[in-house]
Simulated assay, not measured.
Amino acid sequence: MLDSAQLIFDLQKVNTTSKRISGCLDTTAITKEITEALIHDFHCVFARIWLTEPDGASLKLVASSGLHTSTNGSFARVPMGAYKVGKIAQSCIPFLSNHLANETWVKDRDWAIANNIRGFAGYPLVGHDRVIGVLAVFSEAPFVAEFLEVLQVLCMAVAIAIDAVRQLQSETNTINTTQFLDDQIPLPDVLARLLSQTKLTLIGTEKKLSPTLAYLLIRTTEIFNRLSCNYCRLIYGEISVTIEAIVEASVSEAFNTDGRSPFKEIEFLAHHVGGEFRSQSSVNQSILQISLQLPYDGFQNIKLNKHLLSEREKEIVSLLAQGLRDRDIAEELHISESTVKFHVNGTLHKLNAKNRYQAIYQATVQGFI
């Protein structure tokens, strides 16, 4: 049975680790921070991260902590689809085993036996709907199945950080965004150069932003430009910075042929730093008014959204965190089991959680429980 208290404790440690890599612009430092955290905070004995090479044909070992710290050797390069790491990258399917030495795919069973390693877990790093790497951890003690939930949140944070670095290193259609950091070009100037169809309007006094927030604003402006926006303004408020645009709905739909919003990445990243993304159609559905609001202090402002859950939803998620089942919660609150399920589904939606474990985590970091 899931130990909810342990899960919450582990997810809090993930949150602390995620904060340490937020805004970091060094891929090596990001990945090393994660593998070190897995050794020291999660009691793994060996942790490694591979990143996908530009050609997509292989993975390169970029960080290694614990039993082996060198990134050279026989697993320095892993072909896509080879060994378990390559298979995880190819299939994008997480994997966990507590009988490593007995697995047929293990290349060196003697090594696993000699080091008393039983547990293995591998998780793909996914950014922009593509695999950008793989994280693998080894343990002397068996992993509980829910440890994959912990790795999921951790890998999500790693993928976001690495994607941010890669995007800042790549050239945009009108300017190399790394100039913003290297040459200290003011962010409004960078955004203005990205817009080819309209001029940027600036409101408020410019404030220094973290690289993560600057990246989000740059990426959002790039998408605005792709959608041929005819109005765009940047607003520096007291506690947050906001970028707004107006685009034609028909143009936006043209970039939505696969059923996915062109802002899906922005929505996800904004939620990760406690921001808010809004999109509202006009009365005649001909135009879209789009805005992205980001708090200056990122993660810390997540707790400003305490009005998000109703009192009943807070009660239910608190009981979930205690390990209670739907039937037990229904008895505790004197409501029907179907009502419990209704509120749980509403909570998942409001917290942007895929499952109950993520909901418990989000409710914890946002201060609901």
Rank of each mutant, 00 (worst) to 15 (best):
L194N: 11
R77V: 14
N284L: 12
T177H: 08
W111E: 05
K199P: 01
N284G: 06
I175V: 11
S91N: 15
Q169G: 15
Q184T: 06
E332T: 15
D3S: 13
P54S: 07
A321F: 00
E313A: 14
A114T: 15
E265K: 08
R118A: 05
R20L: 13
P79L: 05
G204C: 03
E146F: 05
E331Q: 15
C155D: 06
C232F: 04
E315N: 15
F143D: 03
D328Y: 00
P79V: 04
L154F: 09
F95R: 08
S97Y: 02
V78W: 02
Y231K: 13
E33R: 11
C24Y: 03
F255G: 03
S250Q: 14
W105Q: 12
H43P: 00
I162S: 00
N345E: 12
Q285A: 09
K60S: 14
A76Y: 04
Q366K: 10
R77I: 13
I239M: 01
W111K: 07
F368S: 06
L2D: 11
F180G: 09
S338H: 07
A270Q: 05
I132K: 02
K303T: 14
K208I: 11
L125M: 03
Q169K: 12
Q179M: 09
A353W: 06
L292H: 06
Q280E: 13
N225Q: 08
R20C: 02
S70R: 11
Q90Y: 04
T257P: 00
A82Y: 11
A82L: 08
L7A: 13
P188M: 05
I302V: 09
F180M: 08
I175Q: 01
N355P: 02
C155T: 11
F368V: 07
I132E: 01
K13N: 12
K13T: 15
S282N: 10
H68K: 15
H40C: 10
A121K: 06
R109H: 10
L195S: 09
S336M: 06
A63W: 09
L96F: 00
V131C: 13
I30C: 03
F255Q: 03
V283G: 07
V131R: 01
Q12I: 13
E171G: 07
A82P: 03
K32V: 02
I316T: 06
I243H: 02
L125C: 09
G298P: 00
D258S: 12
L195Q: 05
